[in-house]
């Protein structure tokens, strides 16, 4: 009896093995071995920040491409691109490291709420319904679609200010939060030397008085910063200033000139003279918070 069982089971196993072998030979997909190699060095986060469907998609695109110009893994950055270039025997495109920046500083204190949202806690849904809980219909809604979109745990809501804050150590500039934000509050900006950056932390396009009424920290489009700037990096359009990070030389004069503290500086050493910096206690507070968060 046992013998029959052993033989029949063995036979079934053998037939199965043969079939599997035949199938794997017949349907074998011949893949460029370099794709696997490239994929090996990629971070494997499948964040889609490169614009391809996952790391596998990016790897095969790299192998097929004739040059690596415009191909960038935002997570791995230059080191990974260098490795890929050496695998493929190509020149790596150099890329400036970027970081996500939240362009809203309408804290709970500065931007009083005038109604209470009672729908699904989702920025996408709230923004299709109406302007938001405050008088400012441009700023951060604070329901955290970007937090949910981030694969790297790099963006969080500060319960005190009600705003999202980026953890620059963790941020890989994949851009998922930028896509997730229905208000276009988040922008990818140049990380800057020693992570030093200056940016306008507001996108309110309302006229100055209206913007100011809705939010004490709003950019009112007064243009003082643009006059102060020696490098023509600042443009004021639709009542809101914007600093072109390719032109900005980080002199920080605009920060001091801003009457509402809407221009933020990050990771600079404390100023020596106290005179111009006497402005913005609010801005300074936000900065220190961001810095403590970076631990």
């Amino acid at each position: 009896m046992i013998l029959i069982a052993v033989i029949s089971l063995g036979a079934i196993g053998a037939i199965g093995a043969v079939l599997l072998y035949a199938a794997s030979k017949k349907f074998e997909v011949i893949e460029d071995p370099r794709i696997a190699q490239v994929q090996e060095v990629l971070p494997g986060a499948n964040c889609g920040g490169c614009g391809y469907p996952g790391c596998g998609g990016f790897a095969s695109a790299c192998v097929k491409a004739s040059s690596l110009d415009g191909m960038l893994c935002p997570v791995g950055g230059s080191p990974v691109m260098g490795q890929i270039a050496s695998i493929l025997g190509m020149e790596a495109a150099s890329a400036e490291p970027m970081v996500a920046v939240v362009r809203c500083n309408g804290t709970c204190a500065a931007r009083p709420r005038n109604n209470q949202y009672d729908g699904v806690k989702s920025c996408a849904i709230a923004s299709t319904l109406y302007g938001g809980e405050t008088g400012c219909s441009f700023g951060c809604l604070g329901y955290g679609d970007c937090v949910a979109a981030c694969n790297f745990d790099a963006i969080h809501i500060n319960p005190e200010t009600g705003l999202v804050e980026v953890d620059e150590e963790k941020c890989t500039s994949c851009g998922a939060c930028v896509k997730a934000c229905p208000k276009n509050v988040i922008e990818l900006r140049k990380k800057g030397p020693k992570s030093r950056r200056v940016f306008v932390s507001c996108i309110n396009k309302d006229k100055g008085a209206i913007a100011r009424k809705a939010c004490a920290n709003a950019c009112i489009g007064c243009g003082k910063c643009a006059k102060e700037c020696a490098f023509e990096a600042i443009t004021v359009e639709n009542n809101v200033a914007y600093i072109d990070f390719t032109k900005c030389r980080l002199c920080r004069k605009c920060v001091a000139a801003c009457p509402t503290g809407a221009i933020h500086e990050l990771n600079f050493p404390p100023r020596k003279e106290a005179a111009p910096a006497a402005a913005k206690p609010e801005a300074a507070k936000v900065e220190t918070k961001e810095e403590t968060n970076q631990k």
Partner: peptide, 10 residues
């Protein structure tokens, strides 16, 4: 909190 209107989708 007092007298803030609620807003929600229909």
């Amino acid at each position: 909190m007092e007298n803030k209107l609620y807003v929600s989708p229909s």
